[in-house]
Design a protein around this nucleic acid. Sequence first.
DNA 1: GTGGTCTAGACCACA
DNA 2: GTGGTCTAGACCACA
Lengths: 129, 129, 129, 129
Amino acid sequence: MLIQLDVQSETPLYTQIMHHIMEGIATGQLKPGDPLPSVRSLAVDLGINFHTVNKAYQLLKEKGFVQIHRQKGVVIQPGGMPKNDDFYREKLQKEIRPLLAEALCRGMDQEQFLQVCQTVYQKIHDGEE
Amino acid sequence: MLIQLDVQSETPLYTQIMHHIMEGIATGQLKPGDPLPSVRSLAVDLGINFHTVNKAYQLLKEKGFVQIHRQKGVVIQPGGMPKNDDFYREKLQKEIRPLLAEALCRGMDQEQFLQVCQTVYQKIHDGEE
Amino acid sequence: MLIQLDVQSETPLYTQIMHHIMEGIATGQLKPGDPLPSVRSLAVDLGINFHTVNKAYQLLKEKGFVQIHRQKGVVIQPGGMPKNDDFYREKLQKEIRPLLAEALCRGMDQEQFLQVCQTVYQKIHDGEE
Amino acid sequence: MLIQLDVQSETPLYTQIMHHIMEGIATGQLKPGDPLPSVRSLAVDLGINFHTVNKAYQLLKEKGFVQIHRQKGVVIQPGGMPKNDDFYREKLQKEIRPLLAEALCRGMDQEQFLQVCQTVYQKIHDGEE
DNA sequence: GTGGTCTAGACCACA
DNA sequence: GTGGTCTAGACCACA
């Protein structure tokens, strides 16, 4: 698991960290029970403040993707990932909606948008930046 | 064109306004050359400050979706919307990527994700909230 | 003398009119004593409000480029154009300064900037848009 | 970097700030990666509102002359200034054109105009007001 | 401490 | 009546 941060980006650093870890889970690089680096060691590796890493881990915990143990550290949720329930799907739709709307404004049709999604799927699976 | 704002949302008000107008363009409710309400009148209608509406309009102008004329007001870009070029597609991919990654973490497969996109497409076209 | 207005432009319409008339004088198309169209007829030709044309003419008068007579209408200053004095040169320098500064930022050198000025000189003389 | 504002001027304050910073870049006083004062501290120094400074910085960002980082503040574009491309040169010509036209009306010839440009060049490099 | 968001309100230029 | 400029000030997110 190599985490690349883009300090230029509008996306907060802790969000970028979350995204990277979720991709690791999505691709199976990170499996249930796998340990994550400690807040401090990851902070050093990334050259950022440990509070920032901590925030990323706390949010992953809130979402149910990791467990945080005082002594043992942080591990990928061992028993079942959070579900893909109605509440989540509702949220996902709200996030996709403005992206799709802009694509349509720019002359994409539904088919082309789905193809972009498939391209992204490939990139995630190939671990391509 | 009815614009619904969610003051609770994390999404800035000006972004919400942008999204609504882009949906209007996407669905054809707003056509090239159509006038938008003046910054001040829309602000009154929405019960917000005119600077907030102005920021939304300025961003739409930067993106190329509207033209702003000092006296005549704001109109939907009359001559050709911004293109769906490589640069844009790159940006779109970066936006879709974390959404898809989380969906995969939660056990969705690619097919289900595409179905969510199609559902969103329907909602946009039906003008459903 | 054909006047082309760009309603999209940030430049006020009356300023654009002034610029066109000054170009006419610069190229000799408009000579001292030549009549300009009446405020109202020019406004009709350009499809704009006559107050806008009037403002352009008033400013040209203030600068000394035209004379306005109640009955006879507006004519290009018959007796000697305004001078190119220290006061004017000071103002010109202030206007050129930010243009040159930006050009330098973008990697132009002095020589290239002067060449752009010469290109513009050609365009004015060729009456090219 | 000393910034002098002219509150009397027609030129908006934020434009004046932009101009000063671009001159700083042009003369090499401000180099890629150099930090600029924070919006709030510069506002205090200049005795103006921080929104005005912020607008100047935002415009410089849009033009590609600076980068804005939410926490670290604002720095001169570290990797390569915006290019002096055809699009820019077109814009520059449009800006020079009315200045040159008026100069010609006032009896300057091309040579004299170029000399004024050279004088301005000297003033920029000497940091003269 | 940094920039971002939003409000409230004054005054101005343009047409 | 339209957008543009500028002020003053509150509260927030990020690090």
